[in-house]
C-alpha cells in the first residue's frame, strides 16, 4: 500500500444546529486523484476547509502529508496548494503579480519565483495575458490562473474545490487535461470536489460519494459501478409504478430494482441488458404502467449515487 497523503477519522462539523459533516473517514494514497462527489451542501467544501486548515472540525482528526491539520497546521499549509470554489482573485492585480505575491507569502526566493512563473504560464497557457489585469480575464482564464497559483509553491497535495464550476465545455476539458498531466507526469496527489458525475468519472482513480455529511460509498469508478450489476435498463412511464416494480423484481436475472420518484423512472439492474430488455418491458404490460421511454446503458456514477442516497444527483 502506498504512503497515505490524506487521512481523516470521524470528522464532524456543527454550525449551530446544522450538521455539515457527520463523521467522514478518508484514506487517500499518494499519487492518486480522489474525487468527492455529491450535491451542493453535502459537506464537500467543509471537508476541504478542514483538510486545508481553514476550519476546525467539531470532532475527529485528519492528517495531510503526514502532518496533523490542527496541531501542525503550518506544516500542512506549507505542503499543499488550494483552489477555492469561488474565484478568489484581486481584479486590480495582473496575473503575474497574483502569482508573484503568492510565492512571496511562502517566502520563495526571487529566482525561484521567476522560474515557477515561467513554467506555470506555459502549463496553463496564459501567454501574454499574464501581464494584464485580472479584471480583463475570462472565467476560464481566471480558473487557469488560480490553478497556477495553487501550483506555484510546488505542493505535494493539491485541493481543488469544484475546479470547473461555471466553465464552458471547452475550458472544462482543458482543466481536466492539466489535472491529468499533473497527476500522471508529476505524481501530484489531488483531492477535488465536484457535483458533475462525468468529471469524477473522467479524472478520479478513487471516488467518495458524499451525501448529507457522510461518505456513503467509496471505491474506483469501476468498482462502484460494478456493484450495481452489468447493465441498467431505465424505464420511464406513467401510472402505477409499484406493480411494475414488484413484477420486475421477481424475474430471476434482475440484480436490483430502484425508483427515482422525481423522474417517474424505474431502474432495473440486470446481468445483460440487451438479452433481457424485452422481458423487462413485457413485465409492464397489463398492470397499469404505461411505458413511455426505455434506455439501456452501463450503470454510471449517477446511478451509484441514486443507489446509495435514494435521490438523483443533478447538475
Amino acid at each position: 500500500m502506498a504512503e497515505l497523503a490524506i487521512t481523516a477519522r470521524g470528522l464532524t462539523k456543527q454550525y449551530g444546529a446544522v450538521t455539515a459533516l457527520d463523521g467522514i473517514d478518508l484514506a487517500v494514497s499518494s499519487g492518486t486523484v480522489y474525487a468527492l462527489l455529491g450535491p451542493n451542501g453535502a459537506g464537500k467544501t467543509t471537508t476541504i476547509n478542514i483538510l486545508t486548515t481553514l476550519t476546525r472540525p467539531t470532532t475527529g482528526e485528519a492528517t495531510v502529508c503526514g502532518h496533523d491539520v490542527l496541531r501542525q497546521a503550518d506544516q500542512v499549509r506549507a505542503c499543499i496548494g488550494v483552489t477555492f470554489q469561488d474565484i478568489v482573485l484581486d481584479p486590480d492585480l495582473t496575473g503575474r503579480e497574483v502569482l508573484d505575491i503568492h510565492g512571496r507569502l511562502y517566502r520563495q526566493p526571487g529566482a525561484l519565483r521567476r522560474r515557477r512563473l515561467a513554467e506555470l504560464v506555459e502549463l496553463v497557457q496564459l501567454g501574454d495575458a499574464i501581464d494584464r489585469r485580472v479584471r480583463t480575464y475570462s472565467g476560464g482564464m481566471k480558473r487557469r490562473l488560480e490553478l497556477a497559483r495553487g501550483l506555484m509553491t510546488e505542493p505535494r497535495v493539491l485541493f481543488l474545490d469544484e475546479p470547473t464550476q461555471g466553465l464552458d465545455p471547452q475550458n472544462r476539458v482543458g482543466i481536466w487535461g492539466y489535472i491529468r498531466e499533473l497527476n500522471r507526469v508529476r505524481g501530484l496527489t489531488l483531492l477535488l470536489t465536484t457535483h458533475y458525475m462525468d468529471e469524477a468519472e473522467a479524472l478520479a482513480s478513487q471516488v467518495g460519494i458524499v451525501d448529507r455529511g457522510r461518505l456513503v460509498a467509496e471505491g474506483t469508478p469501476g468498482e462502484l459501478v460494478a456493484t450495481l450489476g452489468a447493465d441498467v435498463i431505465r424505464v420511464r412511464g406513467q401510472g402505477e409504478q409499484a406493480h411494475f416494480v414488484a413484477e420486475v423484481a421477481r424475474l430471476p436475472f434482475v440484480v436490483r430494482v430502484e425508483t427515482d420518484a422525481a423522474d417517474a423512472m424505474v431502474l432495473v439492474y440486470v446481468d445483460s441488458g440487451s438479452r433481457r430488455l424485452v422481458e423487462v418491458v413485457g413485465a409492464a404490460s397489463g398492470n397499469g404502467f404505461l411505458v413511455e421511454d426505455v434506455t439501456l446503458a452501463r450503470p454510471s456514477l449517477g446511478d451509484v449515487f441514486l443507489h446509495h442516497t435514494g435521490r438523483a444527483l443533478r447538475d
Binding site: 506549507a78 499543499i80 477555492f84 469561488d86 482573485l89 503568492h102 507569502l105 511562502y106
Partner: peptide, 16 residues
Amino acid sequence: DERLRGILKEYLAAPI
C-alpha cells in the same frame, strides 16, 4: 473587500 471576495482564504491557507 478581501474578506467578501474570499481573498482572505488565500492568506489563511498559507503558512503565515
